[in-house]
Design a protein around this nucleic acid. Structure first.
Lengths: 341, 341
DNA sequence: TTGAAAGCGCTAACAC
DNA sequence: GTGTTAGCGCTTTCAA
């Protein structure tokens, strides 16, 4: 038996093609009895609308795009699953697009993708969610978009974010409460603004607790494990080294732990280490890493909802959504050592 | 200026629609001069074929599917990038579909996806690449598919694989060469056959070197970090414990290292540990893990090529491709300790 | 080597 | 509330 078309359904249900179309698209103005007849025919024929025909006639692709710049594999996969969970039931499919956010041609590449595939709407994840050039290009093409954890020009699109700054404030306070006063901080990649902002939470906590901010205790990382190692060396080889190091992400925190092991510094007895993200490595290294967990899938779901709402023309305003991260205390943090001998 | 259509291009080039179509699809039987005229018109109008119209008229979707069951985030992302690298330039797009391989409805779910989206061809990654029920369903629907690292019924489809067994044989030999004779092995999840086969390499190496295979030295893991910990406890709490442990993947190896640390067993002085996969955690834990690196992206690219070839009706035979993995020696392995006191 | 005509299966605009 | 009519922009078939 060949695949059923909308005509077959219409014939079987004894209605017109258009009525079937109305039922399939959940449009109003169909009498319940008619709707049921159509639904029965659909079920009987196992009818599936042909996406290509819909797209062609409706001048829409029913495709969403996901742009990611490899912050971390787990982050991306979590986002991906969150998006699919929401968009599939609503009839949208997802096109994923990895991109190198350093590539100067990134905007052109993405513009081409949007044009070629006629993508209906797109989600930008960090650090691409702060790429102004790209965003303006999308605006010019009238491609609706939603952003995850943007830090710039938030008025430009709907977005979702987490309370990163607050979480890093809380984490810093936690370290202070354990008696630490010399707390090192390893900043994130400057292009990845959302990570960078975590530094602000650290600073706020120090100020709040009357601890002077010292440049000697701050190092500039690049989000990678290797950069974490380099920063750790810089911080730990000082004569008066910190008793705790808070890194802006887990990879860098893992780098700190590696260096500490190599230098024979005991964690947490001699050095507390905290990270951010709760990637799998956080609980797989020894000792397990105290960190901050973000609701990544929840963010992705919320963002997808905002995007689809936008596509449907609802909510002309630009909604935003804030989700909360939570601190996960493990074995890498402990009370500050007594004044060192 | 509105989007150019094939008619616009035909008019500008002074040829028929069909000729433009021929040029766009790289069909033969177009005079070079004509081809150039058309290409000039395409460039001038910045013409992009409309996928939906193509799909509708051609009764193809130009969509490939990627089914994955979360073996590991990095694995999936690597595969994904490899596929995109090959399929995009050939005019195919990718639909990703995470699935739980334990779910009894998985076959129905995927069959529905294939029908709804009219997917032209699909790639199965482990452990789904061994799901016979699913494969038969795909055959019945005539959906072409390619498999990554299958272990069963290899004649059923084109596939790519790596020399896992040989690599684990080599790794075991390496440990033996370091003087180890009591070498523990942690098997992978029984549903994940490709991982399971790594055990065979271990066994072969023992036999080759006249070392008896002891059940006391083998533990059954489930691929997860936690299962690695459990197996490690089982192996290390014995009175006569192994001097080396080879785990069928990195996550389990990381579990072994965690337990060793907790038990105060020094790595590699008192215990060598080796893993498989070279996931990021392998070089982020301390001491860095000796492991096996698979050419994941290369496999994905090769598999995509095989799939597309199949879609184009070439190569009616079922080709297969074997890629080679390489051992990465890091700090977690060393010479066997002297007979223990 | 090229072209003309006929759809693919659906939605949009409007009529009833 | 429902139906009619025209395409959407391509590929296919077959003729020239």
């Amino acid at each position: 038996m060949a695949k059923a078309t909308i005509d077959d359904v219409a014939a079987l249900a004894g209605v017109s093609m258009k009525t079937v179309s109305r039922v399939m698209n959940n449009e109003p103005n169909v009498r319940p009895a008619t709707r049921e007849k159509v639904e029965a025919a659909v079920a009987q024929l196992d009818y599936r609308p042909n996406m290509s025909a819909r797209s062609l006639a409706g001048n829409r692709s029913y495709l969403l795009g996901l742009l990611y710049g490899i912050p971390s594999a787990h982050y991306v996969l979590d986002i991906q699953e969150g998006v699919l969970d929401i968009c599939r039931p609503q009839g949208y499919e997802l096109l994923v697009h990895p991109c190198n956010h350093q590539d100067p041609n990134i905007t052109q590449e993405i513009v081409d993708l949007m044009r070629d595939k006629r993508i209906d709407g797109v989600m930008l994840t960090p650090p691409i969610s702060d790429n102004m050039t790209l965003m303006h290009a999308l605006k010019r093409m009238s491609v609706p978009f939603v952003r995850v954890a943007p830090t710039e020009s938030k008025g430009l699109s709907p977005y979702v974010e987490t309370n990163d700054q607050e979480a890093s404030y809380d984490m810093t306070c936690k370290l202070i409460a354990l008696g630490h006063t010399r707390i090192g901080f390893i900043c994130g990649h400057p292009d990845h603004r959302a990570v960078t902002l975590r530094f602000d939470g650290y600073k706020a906590a120090l100020i709040e607790n009357d601890i002077p901010l010292s440049n000697d205790l701050v190092a500039n990382g690049l989000n990678s494990f290797e950069s974490g190692e380099a920063c750790a060396r810089k911080l730990l080889e000082k004569k008066s080294r910190p008793t705790a190091i808070f890194a802006a992400n887990d990879d860098m925190a893992a780098g700190v732990m590696m260096v500490a092991h190599q230098l024979g510094i005991k964690i947490p007895e001699e050095l507390s280490v905290a990270g951010f993200d709760d990637t799998p490595v956080a609980h797989q290294i020894w000792p397990a890493l105290t960190t901050v967990r973000q609701p990544i899938q929840a963010m992705a779901k919320k963002a997808t909802e905002l995007l689809i709402k936008q596509l449907r023309g609802k909510d002309v305003q630009l909604p935003a959504s804030m989700l909360t991260s939570t601190i996960i205390v493990r074995e890498s943090t402990g009370v500050a050592p007594k004044k060192h001998s």
